[in-house]
Design a protein around this nucleic acid. Structure first.
Length: 493
RNA sequence: GGGCCGUUAGCUCAACUGGUAGAGCAACUGACUCUUAAUCAGUAGGUCCCGGGUUCGACUCCCUGACGGCCCA
């Protein structure tokens, strides 16, 4: 607790005064008859029933502004739905209640009962016949006009951000609607929602550094999951043919405008589908969600228009390197030339990197930032795709795609390996990469291979980064704007 | 990890070349029974992020550190 400011001391003195007068600062017996939003609906529908002698309502909320004019006052207060003005008169409320009101502060929760009338300017206003304190605020709110701007304070004290900044509220309301819409989409398509372990003995399903933890009773190390993939596919083995999970993944890496150590993904698997079916499904899902949330298939993101209407470009990665990345097709097959090319273009590449990895790194730098409209890149090299099914036509590539929008990766999907021997060998390949110094290479998971040995139907699966998708639909430049409590260093001040 | 920028009253921000730290809102006292960022009169409020250095003198210049933002890796 920081040193108490004078403002808080003054409030505490007033609080003591209220207590001495027998006022309950935290009662819990005031029941609003409707929310402010509902009240405004009534105003829109049947204004004839309103007026000083009309219907009366119980409304509650937080006082956000007060205009005291001697023996009468206007207050503006808001609940979770909307805001409203109330008019308080000394002769109507009585001396006792009115002087109680005068001791209250902006930020306090209050309850008002009365009819609605229109002020001179036509604003519908609650005429207070009863007025009560519902909850006392000890600390002052930020300033009413400029609000709370300091990003550090907005993130650390998100509740203040939500009270003061309507835009912030709207982002998280939208986020909730997006997730609900996605859930509905999957359910309508016959997918079943499941929950798989967040704590795993082996952190598999992606290439990333995990967080470690310890289970006391079992005396064993556990990892926070970096992906749910290997568990979801066990469920497909078990006969759940269409499953999805919306939940957090944890990756022990840096923080940036696009990365938070914990982030939300939807991952889903469908038996008897291939990666092309999933591209179709993704287009359909994005188009329908964007339409539902934004009212149109096109959105504005950071000054550029992005159209989610179905029929997105699908470009093989190699082709994209030539056409978009400007790489000479003559050097594509030669690792040495690619390394030289990378060096000339200041792209950091380790000598140990295999051919497919070099291609992928070049892609990340040369192509990814240029993919503004929704674009599927297909045919990822086998070295960087340890869980993706080998392409029938080319054993160097996999039946895999990634989706890019606004220059960033949004989704990753592929036809799954269901040949246990192939999967085993892929893990061995990864183990070798690990030996060569790639600490993020996938770990051998024999139990998963064993599950495949019982037989998994042909399957395709995909993961979509929800935070990044929400960023697009809320025009947010940073992932912190769409995560309620983004990760920060310990507060020392 | 590197570069740039920031941190001053509860909040939003000023403070010139190094010379007693300011405003608006919020708060407090008073006036005011239709205000709309109400108005009017007055009052109070500061570890200038922490620590060190230079200087007669540091919010200001230098160094270390903390936290945050943006960009890069």
């Amino acid at each position: 607790m920081d040193k108490e400011s004078k403002l808080i001391q003054v409030r505490k003195e007033k609080i003591n005064e209220l207590k001495e007068n027998g006022i309950n600062l935290y009662p819990n017996d005031f029941k609003p008859s409707c929310s402010i939003k509902e009240l405004k609906k009534i105003i829109g529908k049947r204004p004839d029933s309103l007026g000083e002698k009309g219907d009366e309502f119980y409304v509650a909320g937080r006082m956000m502004a007060v205009n005291k004019m001697g023996k009468s006052s206007f207050i503006r207060f808001k609940d979770g739905s909307d805001q409203l003005q109330a008019y308080l008169q000394k002769n109507r409320l009585g001396d006792e209640t009115y002087s109680l009101f005068k001791k209250l502060d902006i930020g306090d929760f209050i309850g008002v009962k009365g009819p609605l009338f229109q002020t001179r300017t036509g604003e519908w206003t609650l005429l207070a016949k009863e007025f009560r304190l519902l909850s006392k605020a000890v600390r002052p709110l930020p300033e009413k006009f400029h609000g709370l701007k300091d990003p550090e304070k907005r993130y650390r004290r998100r509740y203040l951000d939500l009270i003061m900044n309507e835009d912030t509220r709207q982002i998280f309301i939208k986020r909730s609607k997006i997730v609900a819409s996605m859930r509905r989409f999957f359910e309508e398509k016959g997918f079943m929602e499941v929950e798989t372990p967040m704590m795993q003995p082996l952190a598999g399903g992606a290439e990333a550094t995990p967080f470690k933890t310890w289970h006391n009773a079992l005396g064993m190390e556990l990892f926070l999951r970096i992906a749910p993939e290997l568990y979801l596919k066990r469920l497909v083995v078990g006969g759940f043919e269409k499953v999805f999970e919306i939940n957090r993944n944890f990756r022990n890496e840096g923080i940036s405008t696009r990365h938070n150590p914990e982030f939300t993904m939807v991952e889903f698997y469908q038996a008897y589908a291939d990666y092309e079916n999933l591209m179709d499904l993704t287009e359909e899902m994005f188009e329908s969600i964007v339409k539902e949330i934004s009212g149109s298939t096109a959105i504005e993101y950071q000054g550029q228009t992005i159209d989610f209407k179905k029929g997105w470009q699908r470009i093989p990665m190699i082709e994209s390197l030539v056409k978009i990345g400007g790489v000479d097709p003559a050097i594509l097959d030669d690792t040495e030339s690619l390394l030289n090319f990378a060096q000339k273009n200041n792209i950091q590449i380790t000598k140990k990197d295999r051919h497919g990895k070099v291609l992928t790194k070049l892609f990340d730098i040369l192509v990814e930032p240029k993919l503004i409209q929704p674009t599927f890149i297909t045919g990822y090299p086998i070295e960087v795709s340890p869980l993706s099914r080998k392409s029938d036509g080319n054993p160097e590539l996999t039946d895999r795609f990634e989706l890019f929008i606004a220059g960033r990766e949004i989704a990753n999907g592929f036809s799954e390996i269901n040949d246990p021997e192939d999967q085993h060998n892929r893990f061995l390949m990864q183990a070798q990469q690990r030996d060569e110094g790639n600490s993020e290479a996938h770990i051998m998971d024999s139990e998963y291979v064993e599950a495949l040995e019982y037989g998994m139907p042909p399957t395709a699966g995909e993961g979509i980064g929800i935070d990044r998708f929400v960023m697009l639909l809320t025009d947010s430049p940073s992932i912190r704007e769409v995560i309620l409590f983004p990760h920060m260093k310990k507060n020392v001040c």
